[in-house]
């Protein structure tokens, strides 16, 4: 009797879970970068960014 199906299931579930985690982190990065860009376009500056600019 072959147990190939168990091996395939273990690898497939792992690939899906890790792939999903990576996509979730990438989408989160993109959302935060987009929000930062929008705030900067509205003229909002971070305190440290303002002091850097004043130097």
């Amino acid at each position: 009797m072959t147990h190939l199906a168990y091996v395939v299931a273990a690898y497939a579930i792992s690939a899906l879970a890790i792939g999903g985690l990576a996509v979730w982190i990438l989408l989160d990065q993109r959302a935060q970068k987009q929000a930062l860009k929008e705030l900067e376009e509205r003229g909002v500056r971070r305190r440290s960014a303002r002091t850097e600019a004043a130097r």
């Binding site: 982190i25 990438l26 990065q29 935060q32 970068k33 929000a35 930062l36 705030l39 509205r42 971070r46």
Partner: peptide, 27 residues
């Protein structure tokens, strides 16, 4: 190595998230 990659990526997203919420509070 994969864990370290994902951790650094997630840390970058978290730093940006904190900047966004600080800027929203300021505005």
């Amino acid at each position: 190595l994969l864990f370290l990659t994902l951790h650094l990526m997630a840390m970058r997203a978290e730093i940006w998230r904190r900047r966004v919420s600080a800027m929203r509070r300021m505005s």
